[in-house]
Structure formats: structure tokens, C-alpha cells
Design a protein around this nucleic acid. Structure first.
Lengths: 223, 223
DNA sequence: GCAAAAGTGTTTTCAATACACCCATGG
DNA sequence: CCATGGGTGTATTGAAAACACTTTTGC
């Protein structure tokens, strides 16, 4: 306890777990690593913290420079410090959670072909570099706790959506099936959504009613 | 966005919010600062991270060297990085939450008279150095979310306790009064506590029944 | 007309709430 | 005997859960 080896520089990096909903699946954005170690493995977008930059600035850089987004919802997730490198250096990883709706995410994806990046469903992740699998696990765990808040959902569905879509996101994140009738009853009774008058198109089966969040909706917890 | 000034060292410190229940009040442990800046103000115990030490080691040092505890429950709270110093240096503060029962806390307090330290009720904090007031606020906010978990409560009450004691902690942390009958009903119906057969002593009024957590109790959320 | 997914109502069960009086102790 | 705080029971309300059939669309 308290055995000091020698003074050395600690590196701090910020990483971000950007989540979106694509084709009804909850997905996270990953980049493929081009160099050893872990060449060919996937990792979370991130950047070393430099020169008196506050963490918030660094994460903004990551989001803008690497992902190509100018704004998305961000909050802190967790700090990891076990990932020690060869030479007495300690890398501290500050992990963030970002949420983006599928439409914005899709547009930006076209712009960025210089990196190999991909959205992976959280239940089928590829080989991940370093401890990034742990980092994603922790972010997903926190997402589970956040998703019961209606304000949080709105960030994933800023446009219109169907109730079956939203229900499916809950089922994926909470890891359990829910009764369709009870789910709608609850969601609609909250009074935070209203039908747009339109119907979903193109899918199999009966088209679903499209809803949007009311402008004046009050943040609440479900479940 | 991304304007780099120059390379410089970022300092990382760990801080801990140690909470206990003393005389029925939720309190946090603070030390008085001996030197300028903020001489005479109070602050959270903490330490700079050195030499490839993982954060967990650093916080262990703090707990052992400065507080005199060999073990207490610890979890991460939040990272603060706005506290920039004069010379382009950035201090990143990694904040932890620690919980200790009053009995262990009391014993250790005797041992440590070389520092001026004191337990302050969270609703009447003294003048705090740096941004430590924000840091405590954040920790208390997280405590509010954690306290609904029975496992968390047990860490504050590992020995025996009365139901009015526990109820009071809930009321302090959640910031609302609760009905005594409904509170007991809920708590006892959980089946996680059992009466010891003894009664509290020394207080005014009728002595209260003492309870302990059952050995095999299942972690659950209340409220 | 068939497959696929959306939409709808009722009953039961259980937890949350509201509420007022009696009990044990110390002084 | 009085002040102080602890302990108890019941009725009401509302949300959660369980459950099966009908509707709309594409092919």
C-alpha cells in the first residue's frame, strides 16, 4: 500500500460510447485499429487529453474530428485506470456516453470514409482492443439505468417513432420481453407523446401509428 | 474547438467523500486546509496520483494514510476537470464515494489528531476550498440514487439499528418526510431484517426495537 | 386468403397512501 | 402524570400484470 516506484507521466484519454438505434437495434460506434498492438481489432473513438484542455474539450474534439458530429448528447460514464502500459506509464481512460438519433448518425456516416468505422449491435460486438469491452459493458449498464427516464429516450427518438420501435429498445436494453398492451397503456397514459396522424411504411404487416414527443412534455421515469 | 496551446503535464488527484451516520445525521468527512490558497477552508481528503499507480491504489492510500481506515466500501463518483490552475496545468479530480458505519468511524477518529478533521452534516457544510462543494453535491446526488438499494444501506448499518434511525436517513437523503407506519410495513415486509430481541437505550421516549439484516438477505431496491 | 405485425379491454393482484390512537420509558 | 418518541391496523386508491382476439397491410 502506497509503494511509490518513481515519478512518471500519467496519460489521460477520453473515450466515447456513441449509441444509436438503427433498424430497431441498439448499436455502438466503433473504429478499426490500424496499427499494433491490437491491429485489426475494434475500439471506441477517443483521444489523449493534451495541454490543459478540459476533458470536455477533448471529448468535443473526438466527436467533431473523428466522428464528424457537431453536437450530440454527452454525459460521463466511468473512469478506468487498470490499463497500464509497459514502461510504468498509466493510461487513465475517461469514458463518456453519447446518444444520437439514427437519422443524424446516418448522414454523418457517409462523410467519413477515411476511417473504417461501423455501428455494432450491442449484443454482437467484434473483437475489441485493450479493455474496451469492459468499458462498453459499463456504459450499457448505465444506459439501462438511464433509459427509464423519458427525457433520455427523447434523445434517441427526436423525430417520429412507432410504439413497437420504442418498446423493442426497452426490451433490448432491459433484457426482457414486455406485454405490448401494458407497454402502450403506460406510455400513452404518460401523456408525453401524441400521434402525428401518419403511419409507418414499408414494413411487413399492419402499418404502425407514428408518434412524436409533445413539445411541453415533462421528464419522467417509467418502470 | 481543438486549439492546442502547448504540451504540459496534467495532474490527476483522487478525492473521497466518506459518508457516515452519526447521531442519526448523514455526515461527510472533511479536513481543514493548512496552507494558502484557501487556508482555513475545508476540503475532501485526497491525494495526487503518482508513478503509474492505478487510481484504486491512490484512493486506498488516502483512506489508509489520511483517514486511518483499512477498509471501507468505495465506489467511483465523478470526474471534475474544470479546476484549472494558473500555469496551463489542468488538475483532474477523480471523486469517490466511501461509506462507513458510525462505530468504525468513531474508533478511527481518536487515532488521528495530527490532522484537523471533522464530520459535517451534509446539510450544514462549512466553507469549502476549490470546487469541493460541487463535488460533494454530486456525491450526495448519487447517494440519493444508491440509497434505495438495500445492499447500500447495509454498509451504513452493519450492526444493529432501529427502524426510526433508518427512516431518518432516508428522509434526510431523499429530502422528504415519510409515514412511519408505511415505512415499517415496507421495510419489514421485505423480509431482510430481523429483530435482535433487544431494545435501544438512553433516548427519550419509548425504547425502539433493534434489528439486524438477515445473513442471507437478498439485495433489493426500495422506493 | 394467408402471413405478419399492430391495435385493443377487462380482470386480478399487489403495493402505495392516508390516517389516529395506544404504549413504554424517563423525569 | 406528563412529555417524548415508538409501535400498530384498516380502508382506499392506483398502477402493474396477466391474458386473447381483431384489424390492417403486402403478397
Amino acid at each position: 500500500m502506497g509503494l511509490k516506484v518513481k515519478e512518471c507521466i500519467n496519460y489521460i484519454e477520453t473515450l466515447i460510447n456513441v449509441f444509436t438505434i438503427e433498424n430497431g437495434k441498439v448499436k455502438v460506434l466503433l473504429f478499426r485499429k490500424k496499427t499494433d498492438p491490437y491491429k485489426g481489432y475494434w475500439l471506441l473513438p477517443g483521444e489523449m487529453v493534451k495541454s490543459g484542455d478540459a476533458l470536455e474539450n477533448t471529448i468535443s474534439d473526438v466527436v467533431y474530428d473523428k466522428i464528424g458530429l457537431t453536437s450530440l448528447y454527452i454525459e460521463q460514464s466511468h473512469i478506468f485506470s487498470k490499463c497500464v502500459r509497459d514502461n510504468d506509464e498509466l493510461v487513465i481512460s475517461v469514458s463518456y456516453i453519447g446518444l444520437i438519433d439514427s437519422k443524424s448518425a446516418e448522414i454523418k456516416r457517409e462523410d467519413r470514409i477515411d476511417y473504417e468505422s461501423k455501428w455494432f449491435p450491442i449484443d454482437s460486438l467484434p473483437k475489441l482492443a485493450f479493455n474496451h469491452e469492459n468499458i462498453i459493458d459499463k456504459a450499457v449498464e448505465q444506459l439501462q439505468n438511464k433509459i427509464i427516464n423519458t427525457n433520455f429516450i427523447k434523445k434517441l427518438f427526436p423525430g417520429d417513432f412507432t410504439l413497437p420501435e420504442i418498446q423493442s429498445v426497452y426490451e433490448q436494453l432491459l433484457g426482457k420481453k414486455m406485454d405490448r398492451r401494458n407497454f402502450r397503456k403506460k406510455f400513452i397514459n404518460l401523456g408525453i407523446v401524441k400521434p402525428t396522424g401518419n403511419k409507418s411504411e414499408g414494413g411487413l404487416g399492419r402499418p404502425a401509428t407514428l408518434y412524436i414527443f409533445r413539445d411541453e412534455f415533462k421528464e419522467r421515469n417509467l418502470f
